[in-house]
Amino acid sequence: MNIGLIISLLSSTLRLGTPIALAALGELVTEKSGVVNIGIEGIMIIGAFFSVVATYITNNPVVGVLVGIIVGILFGALHGLLSVYLYAGQIITGIGVTILGYGLTNVGNAIIWGQPGFSVGVSTIPSIIIRVDGNVFSLSPITTLTLFLAILLHFILKYTWIGLRLKSAGEDPEAADVAGINVFRLRTLASIFGGALAGFSGAYLGVDWSGRFISYMSAGRGYIALASVIIGGWTPLATTLISYVFGFFDALQLILAQIYGRQIAPQMFQIIPYIVTSIIFVFFFRKSKPPASIAKPYKRE
């Protein structure tokens, strides 16, 4: 293997792990509080779509990212309010948001660009370019931000009152309530945070990674993020690491398809990340313990 290949593999790993890691970190906070949002896949695709639309209109990808985050906040809030105040069956709500996301973005794409499948190209967030021996290593600023966020969350969860209260709401909401913590508000806020990062992750796909909207472009990454949180044992650093491991296999798949694409059908490579995720998930599943009250709505009296 030559150095160019290694650099390109590493660069792609960071590129493809970032959307998973971002969504996973958000979901981690949501789940810590006791709410599960399996609809982050849907929020990602919606975030991707609206970020591209915003960039298409303003020609400014930063505005695109902000719009992606705002849309994520709205859907996170929706999921949070339904789960917390109306005791929604969170799994069903999540499936609903996923389907809704696919539908909404496909309809919108057809309306705005008049073609099914994908949008026109829009400008993207400029990458940081590092040259090593004539090989180009490009790094997205959002990747750097993601890594920083992981470390920040690590400290917040471990050493601050916010972390303590989140944990208490997810472990035993009644005890937290008795301790004077507004469990309902806290869980809603945690869902909003999770939604924001899922929207951010979608925006990354739209206006950083690809520079256009493509139907179903989230491609199950929201669910891979869910797997990362579980395998990462609800800790930010491990979750981020495992997200990039999944990113690595996605990158590997692309590079293998480039090299061997003529001899072997592309589908054989495309299934690699999904199979690897499943295998890792099965092997590490038993070792991690979820927050005790996860996905259980809390009711008073």
């Binding site: 917040i156 050493y159 601050t160 009152w161 916010i162 303590l164 209260r165 944990k167 208490s168 472990e171 035993d172 005890a175 937290a176 301790a179 004077g180 913590i181 005790a292």
Partner: peptide, 23 residues
Amino acid sequence: IPNLTVLENIVLGYEPKVKGLFI
């Protein structure tokens, strides 16, 4: 909350704060 320490359980909700964020 069984998974928290005695101290964490006691301060929960009424944490004395340093710099607004840390306990």
